[in-house]
C-alpha cells in the first residue's frame, strides 16, 4: 500500500515489476490517497506526504501480532517476515503451549514455558542457537 493511484501501480507492475516477477505481482497493490489508512497505522510521514516502510502481521482473527517500520532507503528482509509468520502460526497451533526462542526457525527446538523451565533455559538453549 502506498499513496500512489491504482493507475501508477499498474504502470509500475507492467513496466518494471513484471520483469522481476513472472506474471507480475500476485497480490493486491493498494492505493491510499492522502495517507488516510497509513495515518491510522502510524506509518504516514506528514512532512514528506508519503508512507514509511511499515509491515504488519495480522492473524486470522484480525489481531496484529507484530510490526516493523523502516525509513525509505532500507529494504525489508522478506525471509524474516516469513519466519515470524511461521513462528506465530506454531504458537497458534499449540495454543501457546510452546514458545519460539531467539533465532528459531522451522525445525529448530521450541521451549515449553512453565515452572520447571524458570531459571533453567541455559540447560536446554545455547546462545549459538540464536544464529543461523
Amino acid at each position: 500500500m502506498s499513496i500512489d493511484s491504482v493507475f501508477v501501480h499498474k504502470m509500475w507492475d507492467d513496466h518494471e515489476l513484471s520483469k522481476m516477477v513472472k506474471g507480475g505481482v500476485p497480490f493486491p497493490m493498494l492505493s491510499d490517497a492522502g495517507g488516510r489508512v497509513g495515518r491510522v497505522f502510524g506509518v504516514y510521514d506528514e512532512d514528506a506526504g508519503v508512507e514509511t516502510r511499515g509491515r504488519f502481521i495480522i492473524d486470522p482473527d484480525g489481531v496484529i501480532q507484530g510490526y516493523e517500520v523502516l525509513t525509505p532507503p532500507v529494504g525489508r528482509n522478506v525471509n524474516e517476515s516469513i519466519r515470524q509468520v511461521q513462528a506465530f502460526q506454531l504458537i497458534r497451533e499449540t495454543k501457546g503451549a510452546e514458545a519460539t526462542p531467539s533465532g528459531w526457525r522451522p525445525g529448530k527446538m521450541t521451549l515449553q514455558p512453565g515452572p520447571d523451565l524458570v531459571g533453567n533455559v541455559w540447560k536446554v538453549w545455547k546462545t549459538d542457537m540464536a544464529f543461523d
Partner: peptide
C-alpha cells in the same frame, strides 16, 4: 482501491479474516 493482475479492485481488510495477512506500506512506486 487496488490493482491486481490486470484488474482494478476494492479490498477490505476484514474480508481476509481467517487468513494470515502481511500488510506492507512503502513510500511510493
Amino acid at each position: 482501491p487496488g490493482y491486481r493482475q490486470g484488474k482494478f479492485i476494492s479490498v477490505q481488510l476484514s474480508d481476509y479474516l481467517g487468513k494470515w495477512v502481511l500488510l506492507c506500506f512503502y513510500p511510493g512506486d
